[in-house]
Every structure is written in C-alpha cells, then in structure tokens.
Amino acid sequence: MIRIKSIFLKLFITYIVILILSHFVLAIVSYFLLQNNLTNMHLNSEDFHQMKYLFVLASIISITITGLFTYYLSKRITAPLREMNRVALHIARGQFNQRVEIQTRDELGELGETFNYMTQELAGLDQMRKDLVANVSHDLRSPLTSIHGFVTAFLDDTIPNERKRHYFTIMKEQTERMSKLVNDLLDMAQIESGQVEIEPVIFNLSELIRQVVARMEPEFANKKLNVELISEEAKDIYVFADPDRIDQVIVNLIQNAVQFSTNDSSVEVILKKEEQAVVSIRDYGPGIKQEDIQSIWERFYKADRARTKKVGTGLGLSIVKHILALHQTDIQVESEVGRGTTFTFTLPIAQNKSNRHEKK
C-alpha cells in the first residue's frame, strides 16, 4: 500500500479524483439521457457518436485546465505549511530568529501567527537560559576565586596570624553567598515548575516580624544599620497565610533593604492594620529610577543597568513576587532616586485567631 506523506500531493490528488468522478457521473447521466431521447432530438447514430467524441474531448480539456488550476491552488494553500516545516527545522537547530511569512488571514494564517509567537517565546526562553548560565557562572566564580586565593595564601603561610581570622570571616561570607544563590535557584525552579504550594493558617504576623528582625541582627550590625519595627497597633495582628513563605518574603525584602543601604543609615519595618494587614519595608538607599521599577522583579535584575555595583543573587525580589502571587496578593514599590525605596504588601486579616492552633 502506497502512503503519501506530502499534504500537497494528498490535496492535489483529492481534487483530481473529485474532478474525474464528477465528469464520469456527468458522462453516464448524459449518455442515458441522450440514448433515451435520440428520436425526440432528431439525432441519428452518427450524430450521437459525434456528440460523444466532442463530450470526451471537452472533458479532457476541462480536466487538464482544471487540473493545472488545482495544482496551483493546492501549492498555494499548502505553502504556509511547507514554510512552517522549513522554519521548524531551523528552530530545531537553535536558530530562533526565523519567522513564518504570513500572507493569509484564514486558519493557516492564524496557525502561522501562533507558530511565530511560539518561536518568539522559545527565543526568549533560550535567551533566559543563556542569561541564567552567564549570571550563575559569574556569581559562583567570584566567591570561588576569592576563596581559592585565600586558601592558597593560607597554604603558603603568607597571611600573618593576626589577619587570619579576618580572612576566615571573608571566606565564610563568600560560602554563605554561594549557598544563598543555590537555595534561591532551587526555590525559583520549584516555583516556576508549579511545585510550590502554600499552606495558609492563622498566625501572629507581628511576632513573626519580631523574630525575623531579631535573627537578622548580625547582618544589621555588620553595616551598623538602625532597624526599627514600627507599629501603632496595641495588639498583635493575626493573618491567614503560609507563615513559612511569608517569613521568606520578609527576610528577602529586609535583606534587599540592607543590601542597598549605606552604613549607619536606617531600615524601617512598618506594620499596620487596615482592611488587611499592611507590611512595609523602607530603606534610605540610592532608590530606583521610575523606568527601572518594572525590571526589579526580573531574575538577576542586579546584572541590569541599575544597582550593578551591589552583590547578591538577584533572585530575591522575583521569589517575593511569585510567593505573594500564590497568596493572591500583590506588592507595591515606591522609590525616589537619592531618597530610598519602600516595598509594601498586604495579607488578609484572620477572622478567628482562636482557631490558629487547630489549623496548624
């Protein structure tokens, strides 16, 4: 059994078969009609054969002309499919700059537009992958080079004993930096693959913030920062959310504030109770340009135009955005160059805090 793989040939042969069948049916019907009405039409046998000959000749000419037109029409209809096949082969080789030329507005045209959109998204993913590799390589290479240099110096006994503790501290900071990068990458991978699910319960948000600020005290001391927890509420605020993920959000936002604050400046953590619980983290660092604010949620934003001189993984704010999206809430940014930046997000107030232990 012969299998035709080309859709063009399938379409062309289908048209030809339909054309021949239509002429065959027409010939049979005409034959019987003429045969039964020869006397009424005053036609003799010779005239009848002459008509059959003319009819066959006309059918051959009709099939030939219609076949040529069908060939052109089939080729034109299937041209977008052949073009998409050509572009798909280039994309398979990693050439994502290819596009399908769309000349129609029918279903094939819509398919071509969808194909171009898919190509554009694949090109974006490929560029994101390249950027990810480049940024991760850079962020891992810098601390590894530093640690390698210090270890070599220790082995060569070129570092005085009184300076060894100082360099050990630097090495510890570099290993913590690499550890945070790896953890952030794992978190981002889980979030984007949909593997992260929140488990909301009722918990004391005020106490959570106090605990976060307390355990981050060494980071504040290193930069001599004055960290203030500001809340005008007489009672603690209870919310309904995932405490572990909200802890991660607050830690990332405070670390971001610390990272971009100058020594001896202040960081404020503000907690208010309105229709929802409102948490704000304010720093008095360099601020962000208005045209750059939308970019801060991108992965490895630190490698872009703004804040390039700072260290960090560049993933913290992206993780914050994703976690709050899972909580069906958003985060707002207010920033002024030279005056600092404030991040604000909200969480739903718990209606019945007495059930918090049962929900846990």
Rank of each mutant, 00 (worst) to 15 (best):
I2V: 13
I4Q: 07
K5Q: 11
I16Y: 01
I20P: 04
S30E: 02
S30T: 14
T39Y: 14
N44M: 08
T64L: 11
F69Q: 07
Y71A: 15
L73T: 13
R82F: 15
R86W: 06
T104K: 14
E107V: 15
L108C: 02
E113F: 05
Q127S: 12
M128L: 15
S142W: 10
A153S: 09
H166N: 00
T175F: 04
M178W: 03
L181E: 03
D184P: 01
L185C: 08
P200G: 01
I202C: 11
F203I: 03
N204C: 00
N222M: 15
V227D: 02
E232G: 11
E233P: 10
D236I: 05
A241H: 08
D247M: 09
Q248M: 10
Q248V: 02
N252R: 11
V258F: 09
D264L: 09
S266N: 11
V267P: 04
I270R: 12
G285E: 01
P286E: 03
I288R: 00
K289L: 12
Q290R: 06
I293P: 00
A303T: 12
T308V: 09
V311D: 13
L315V: 02
I319Q: 03
A325Y: 04
H327N: 07
E334Q: 14
S335K: 06
G338S: 04
T342N: 06
F343L: 02
F345L: 03
T346D: 00
T346K: 15
L347C: 07
Q351R: 12
H357P: 00
K359M: 12
K359R: 11
